[in-house]
């Protein structure tokens, strides 16, 4: 462990590197959740306000699998769970993440079938309000589930760090970047698949897509499933220490995570995969670098000023390009 004296000797380069890694890590979380928003929007033209609650539910599925040794939604034990008191190996933890994402995707499919599908053909505003309703309905159950017990995510490396050129780099931050890279690559590959092309066709013109034999309902469902899985991956990633939840699903922090991503999708463009990736990194970098390098002006700028930075960036972009950096100009409805 470094002492304060050693810290004082830490150079500006090391501080910059630490800040950069933190920005990339937070950016990775933003990218994952923003991709979830974008996929749902591309397919359905609806901004999914339930993303936060779905993300937290996905993180809970992970906790149920790995910490409780259970299976979400089913009364069975998880045969792959590590023995009580033991941590999972990294590969096995990865397997659990994948299983949790499958459950999150199923959850998304169910939500789509029950609450969204009946709204097809209704005004988009009404559908957006339904997603708000889902958020309101799911959140109390998330809170109840995290209320009286800690819900650990079983991260194998806990809060361990590496030292790199004098900078202290949390392993979780590197893992966040890796997970976001995997998630982004998967999404990009998906959009090159036959199903992804169908989704793009639906996004472009639903009636024309239907006329071409594309099952629009199926596309909607897949979009919701994928969106839920990505949001869940974002929430699991953000649960790793030293991100604020400190290794747990947090009833205090996870519910508001998705709303922090709104500037990202506005900046990048609501329907742009590239926009979600670039926007996530840009917004997180602005937030973290402002926090690190303007901290001595805290009294002047006001407490929590770095939280406002993403919205300032968003405002500037909206003035110049109302449809976002990579967004399609035709988009008008939110």
């Amino acid at each position: 462990m470094m002492t304060a004296l050693q810290l004082a000797q830490t150079g500006a380069g090391a501080t910059f590197l630490q800040t950069l890694v933190k920005a990339l890590a937070l950016g990775s979380v933003y990218v994952l959740i923003a991709l979830g928003f974008v996929i749902v929007f591309k397919a359905t033209q609806v901004l999914n306000f339930a993303a936060g609650a779905i993300a937290m539910a996905g993180a809970m599925f992970m906790s149920i699998l790995i910490s409780d040794g259970g299976i979400p939604l089913l009364p069975f034990d998880n045969p792959l769970a590590p023995a009580e008191g033991e941590a999972a190996s990294i590969p096995m933890w990865g397997v659990h993440v994948l299983i949790a994402l499958v459950f999150a995707a199923l959850f998304g499919l169910v939500l789509e079938r029950v609450a969204i599908r009946p709204m097809v053909g209704q005004p988009l505003f009404a559908m957006a309000v339904v997603t708000l309703g889902i958020e309101v309905a799911v959140r109390p159950f998330n809170l109840d589930a995290t209320a009286l017990e800690s819900r650990n995510l079983g991260v194998p490396w806990k809060a361990e760090t590496w030292e790199l050129a004098g900078a202290i780099v949390p392993k979780s931050y590197v893992a966040a970047v890796v997970l976001a890279a995997i998630g982004s690559t998967a999404v990009l590959l998906f959009f090159r698949s036959r199903l992804g092309v169908a989704m793009r066709a639906v996004a472009f013109d639903q009636e024309a897509a239907m006329a071409q034999g594309i099952n629009v309902g199926r596309v909607f469902a897949i979009a919701w499933g994928l969106g839920a899985a990505l949001a869940a991956l974002g929430a699991i990633t953000y649960g790793m220490a030293p991100f604020p939840p400190g290794g747990n699903v947090s009833q205090e922090i996870h519910p508001i995570l998705a709303f922090r991503v709104l500037p990202v999708i506005v900046l990048g463009g609501l329907d742009s995969i590239a926009g979600a990736i670039v926007g996530g990194v840009m917004i997180a970098s602005a937030e973290i670098f402002a926090g690190q390098y303007l901290s001595q002006y805290n009294d002047t700028l006001g407490s929590g000023y770095s939280t406002i930075v993403p919205y300032l960036v968003m405002l500037v972009v909206l003035v110049v390009r109302p449809f976002g950096i990579f967004g399609t100009p035709e988009i008008r409805r939110v």
């Binding site: 004082a8 937030e287 402002a290 901290s295 006001g302 000023y305 770095s306 939280t307």
Partner: peptide
Amino acid sequence: TSAVAGDDRTAVVAELVGSGAN
């Protein structure tokens, strides 16, 4: 005092770590 507002605490951590507090 009152410095922890909003969702990002990078500024607080930067000041704290640089302060040499024990």
